[in-house]
Design a protein around this nucleic acid. Sequence first.
DNA 1: ACAAAACCGTACCATCGGTACACGAGGCGG
DNA 2: CCGCCTCGTGTACCGATGGTACGGTTTTGT
Lengths: 217, 217
Amino acid sequence: MRKGEETRAKILDVAEAAVLAKGFGATSIEELIAETGITKSGFFYHFRDKNELAKALLERYLENDTRIYDEIFGRARELTDDPLQALLLGLKLLSELLADLPNGHPGCLVASMCVYERSFNRDIQQINREAALMWRRRFRGYFEEIVELYEPREPVDLDELADMISTVLEGGIVMSKALKEPKSLPAQLLLLRTFVKLLFRGGRSRRVDASASQFDI
Amino acid sequence: MRKGEETRAKILDVAEAAVLAKGFGATSIEELIAETGITKSGFFYHFRDKNELAKALLERYLENDTRIYDEIFGRARELTDDPLQALLLGLKLLSELLADLPNGHPGCLVASMCVYERSFNRDIQQINREAALMWRRRFRGYFEEIVELYEPREPVDLDELADMISTVLEGGIVMSKALKEPKSLPAQLLLLRTFVKLLFRGGRSRRVDASASQFDI
DNA sequence: ACAAAACCGTACCATCGGTACACGAGGCGG
DNA sequence: CCGCCTCGTGTACCGATGGTACGGTTTTGT
């Protein structure tokens, strides 16, 4: 029981690295079992087909993703009472985390699977969609707290605003890879941070004491 | 000689649609020749291997891409003397164009090929990089004109700012596909437009007559 | 009319995803 | 200690695919 999950995890580890490096289609099962030290039968014992591998890969990736976001934005929230400051700090922390990755961001599995689209099962597309909606809910929640205190200088839809964080992250990953400049991704995230700052700061604050919002984190 | 290019173009048409729908790896040559009405030998007469198909595909895609940008931002530039207004108008026109695509943006080949990365030849990666740098130069040019007249409210790097347009476009495509909401991409682009507006407007204008910049396009 | 360009037909090969099925090591409870 | 279940191994096989090789044929420009 324990051993099985170990092997399974090892397959997923190897597969994730390969998929992020070469794409899902270019990752062969034979290559995975060679590096894992397993046989073909062994592989198909754990995963019925390649589709189920993709599913498991995606689910594990998203769990880890959620954990990281919870940690970063949770920590930011602990450090300040102001929701705007918390988000700005969270974006900065995330940017620093991304900048510290030695070889740049390895790539996003969601984006990787999005490219394939119709080659995959419906449930994978569903997982992808739910992941995007999950991100939207998360960041929208942050922005809802913010607009209770700060009036945006321009009218914006909170869903779209929330989506922009995911958009810049996904786009930043693509552009970082295209440019071969790992620093591009964290830079773009900081630029998005500037946008959030411009959007809510300098505008009329809805709360009485807005002095704290003038500090630059 | 003319006929050859016709067939070649037809192959590229079929291939582009297939690649954008299913990804490059999931697109089989046999499928392409079936839909093109050509034989395998005929295919390999035009392209030495799949790699060269990818290269031709990418080059053609980028030429078309450049043409569209030239047209849109050229038209915007003709309609106003103000570089900021021109860019804001261009972004709006581009957003409208993207919103009018019935099935949403078909996908970006650059992003599609970025995912594959190491499965491709060096020259494809090089083309990808040069495409990204080309976009950077284009948009940086626009921003350079702008900063001569408008002082940004926050200090920004012009390369990063230029990259953000590509970033939002690429990320918007990914998120649109993940969310299955084609309208997300044009919405994100308009949000980026809001950012540009906030960044340069309301700040001190460097020119004497800044009244025109207060019009909302 | 002639040569080059633009294919067609066929045969073949290695790899890959996937199936099927028989068998074996190891732990765990009874 | 027996038998069962988990977790695999080993082998053989299938269809599809990318790719090669090569000879033949049609189409086209000149």
